[in-house]
Amino acid sequence: MAAETWRQLLGQLVPTPSARRKLSQEHQIGLRTLERWISGETEEPNFALLERLLEAFPVQRDRLVLLIQKEFPGFHPLIQADQQSGRIPATFYARILESYTHVAEPLRFWTITNLIFEQMLPILDAENRGIEIVIVQATRPMPGRPVRSLYENVGTGTTPWPQTLASRTLFLGAESLAGYVVSTAQPAVVQASEPTSRIPVTWTAHEMAAAALPLQIGGRIAGCLLVSSTQADFFTPAVQQALHHYSNLLTLAFAPADFYDLSAIALARMPEPSQQQSLLGYFPRRVSTLMAEQGISRQVAEERTRQEMEDELLRQRADTETETSNHDAF
């Protein structure tokens, strides 16, 4: 049941004695004070202590402030929401740095991205409204060529999106939001309700807003972090700040060779997802064949298969365009 007062909401947030004890200890709010707040004693609470309460619940912060102000119109928190919910705990940074320095290279990408997803997902979507987080990576080019496409490498999500990307490893190019962000090395946020001609976006079902942030070190780019939401107003300044921190952390998952100078990136336009599907269906089989025939690792086989498929998709697109222009000529 939705809480009508901040006291009811607080009671729902800490329903058990052990939870109240923990909140009391971790945020230096007296247990007796907490009990009084929840039970509804009418005295005006200490506003400094209420600020501590807001610190404890960054996700419910706005609602708490609104409800507290209904009872105490004079309450105006000094610390702004952006300063709180964009924070990532120092212990988490330490943990990722430790994986960066201690985990062997072939396992590092998987380890770091999984840990970061585990941290991001429940915090960014605490109310299970639906988000998808995808790491889009530059397709390694053949020697002497520029980066011509990106691919969806790993991802996770909450309903209505699947929990994992599974076999959806689409190629993206200049026609996509990810492509725009990688090509400009600038983050972008777009809303389905506010179409813009400047940024190319293809909206998928359920997607009401999307953000993409480049994954870069010193101007060299590996790809981007792509986040979609079912909520049009999802990407508040606080969420954008958090994504900025996560995108910085995610760069540690990549090997130095995965980063490219901006001048070495010349993305082409890739075919529509529906036109890619028939080819991508063969991806696992072609990887398996390469591994068996050449005795190479899965990672290398996947990289070569992607390069071949990128070539095939670009040829397919060129053929379609030639056909269309021939039709037009008639």
């Binding site: 947030l13 939870a19 909140l23 419910q60 705990p89 943990r95 429940p122």
Partner: peptide, 26 residues
């Protein structure tokens, strides 16, 4: 009220930090 136990301090520290980040005081 949920309690998790494990012999690995590394695992427990991770679980604790997750509980804190997700504000799971229970």
């Amino acid at each position: 009220s949920v309690t998790g136990i494990d012999i690995s301090r590394r695992m427990i520290e991770f679980a604790q930090s997750q509980a804190a980040s997700r504000q799971l005081l229970n």
